[in-house]
Nucleic acid binder design. Structure first.
Ligand SMILES: [Mn+2]
Ligand SMILES: [Mn+2]
Ligand SMILES: [Zn+2]
Ligand SMILES: [Zn+2]
Lengths: 142, 142
DNA sequence: ATTATAAATTATAATTATTCTAAACTGTTG
DNA sequence: CAACAGTTTAGAATAATTATAATTTATAAT
C-alpha cells in the first residue's frame, strides 16, 4: 500500500499516468534491495510469479520503454538476440557470466577510472563502460 | 588472382573448403588495409557492389559464422537488434558513433590497460573490453 | 457523480534478424 | 570418372520486437 503509493507519485511526477499495470511493473522492478538486470522475458515471468496478474506483452514492452525514456531504466547490449535492462541507471561496468548469462554490476572500486586519451573529433563522449566476460574456470572451448 | 590464392590456402589450412563463395567473401572481408566492422547486411551490400555476384543470405551467415568459429572474425554486440562483426579479432576497445551507427577501433594507446581488481569467485576472465559511446556535440536529447 | 477526452491496454498481426530444412550442386578423394 | 561428404540455396520457421486498431481506463471538465 505505502509502497505502491510511492510509485504512483513517482510516475505522476514524471508525466507517466500511474495505471494499474505500470504500478505493478514498478513494484516488481524497484521493490528490491539489489540492482535488477533482466530481459523482457525475465520480467514477464516475475510478474506472473510475484504478482498473480497477467499483463500483456505489449504493455510490458511499452512500460519498460517508457521507464527507460524517463531515466528509470537503462538498456544494455550483451548479445544480439535479446535486450537486457538494468535498474541501475548510472554509468557503470559489468561482469557477464557466459555460463549462466547473468549480468552483475562491478563495484565502484573494482575497476578504476578508464581514461580515454583521444576522442573522435567533433564528438562528445556519452559513456565509457567496461564489459568483463567471465566463464567457468574448467571449460575448454575449441 | 594472387590475392584469391592466399584465401584459398588460408581457408584450406583451417579446414574450410575453399569454395567460390567463401573465397569471394574472404576477398571482401580481408582485402583491405583497415579493420572492417560490419553487419551481415553491410556485407551482403558490399558483395553485390564490389563483386557482381549474388551469394545467398544463408551462405553469408554460414560463412561468417564459420570464419568466426575459426577465429578470423569477432562478433560484437552494440545494440540488440543486429550483430556486428569485426576483422580485428584481438581483444580491443571501441568507439561507437551513435549518430552514424559506426564502430571504430581504439588505438592501443588511447585507453590504458583496464585493471579489474576483483573477479567473481570460480570464474576466469575471458575478455575486458571498453565501449565508448560518442555522439555529435550539438545534439540535445530530452 | 457523469461525461468527455486523451492516453493506455490488449490481442493480434507485422516486421526483422537469424536459423533451419531439405533438395540441388560442387569439391575432393580414390 | 564415380562416390561421397560438404556446401549452397530458396524458402520456411523461429524469436524478439514493434505496429495496429479496437476496447478500456484515467483524468479533467462539467
Ligand atoms: Mn549472439
Ligand atoms: Mn531480433
Ligand atoms: Zn548494471
Ligand atoms: Zn574493432
Amino acid at each position: 500500500m505505502t509502497k505502491n503509493f510511492n510509485f504512483i507519485e513517482k510516475l505522476r511526477e514524471t508525466g507517466l499516468r500511474p495505471t494499474k499495470q505500470r504500478v505493478k511493473i514498478c513494484e516488481v522492478l524497484f521493490n528490491r534491495d539489489k540492482t535488477f538486470h533482466f530481459t523482457i522475458n525475465d520480467l514477464v515471468k516475475k510478474i506472473s510469479e510475484e504478482l498473480n496478474e497477467k499483463i500483456s506483452l505489449a504493455t510490458v514492452y511499452n512500460t519498460v520503454h517508457a521507464l527507460q525514456k524517463k531515466g528509470y531504466l537503462k538498456e544494455i547490449s550483451i548479445n544480439s538476440d535479446k535486450s537486457y535492462f538494468d535498474t541501475n541507471t548510472t554509468t557503470h561496468h559489468h561482469f557477464y557470466d557466459e555460463d549462466t548469462h547473468q549480468l552483475i554490476d562491478c563495484d565502484e572500486n573494482e575497476i578504476e577510472n578508464v581514461n580515454v586519451k583521444n576522442n573522435i573529433t567533433g564528438k562528445k563522449i556519452n559513456s565509457v563502460e567496461v564489459l568483463v566476460r567471465v566463464a567457468s574456470d574448467n571449460q575448454n572451448q575449441n
